[in-house]
Amino acid sequence: MKSPVPGILAAALLALLPLGADGAAPLCALPPEFAASNQPTPRVAALLRPGGDLAILALGTASSFGPDGRQPRLGFPARMAAALRKAAPEARITLTLKGGRGLTAAAMLPMLRGALRSSKVGLVIWQTGTVEAVRDSPPGNFLAALAEGLSIVRAAGADLILVDPQFSRFLRTDTNIDAYESAFHEVAFEPGVVLFARYELTHAWVDAGSFDLERARSSATPALAAAMQDCIGQALAHFILSGAEKAGGSSR
């Protein structure tokens, strides 16, 4: 993009979002290292302006579909879209949710291909990796699936944000999570894709004691899980806006 307008606009929107180190909601407190995208997302920058038409495809497993995997309205993609709409009311933002419980990245590839063929998408948010880690499927295959997904998204001219697993002590202790995380970082090093480091973010929340689902009382779990999805959604919206801002800023 030649015009710096989207960047300036995104910066202004960013200031509107009630988030950040001194954000309004203390539960959602975002450690500074997670506040901003380290890579520009030019497609999003171009579409997220007044009159713009940003179609988002969110692809993921159970956690994209709400705290219990059955309430997509409470899932982080829907919460992200809501936060984004609030921050950019002049743009038309639509969200399509695909995927489902227990799907591997490889199993989601045909869905990705189909969804990008049938409609014009500006941003793909791909949440994956947990199923592979829990099943211990080969990390090398996972890396290959991520790389293929990236090339599909690139060919469709969209930006890609990868979302890695949500931290849990179980994943850390009982799975080979580091290998899958390495695969995420390897792919996210490519142009056209950024990693929203949900694993590190939710780990920081657990360490801070704000969202610790593994330690929560069972009666408090559903509400806490929903609040956590909301916070992840807001953080992701923040991340998207910062990526757009970077794209605008770097285009001049």
């Binding site: 890396l143 080979n176 290998a179 390495s182 970082h185 390897e186 996210a188 090093f189």
Partner: peptide, 26 residues
């Protein structure tokens, strides 16, 4: 050194990372 810092993966030679990811338990 390698596994605890997944961000390092992007700086490893691709063949080395591919090899590491293939070290399977199964």
């Amino acid at each position: 050194v390698v596994w605890p810092y997944p961000a390092l993966a992007a700086h490893l030679p691709p063949w080395l990372l591919a090899w590491l990811l293939d070290v399977d338990k199964t």
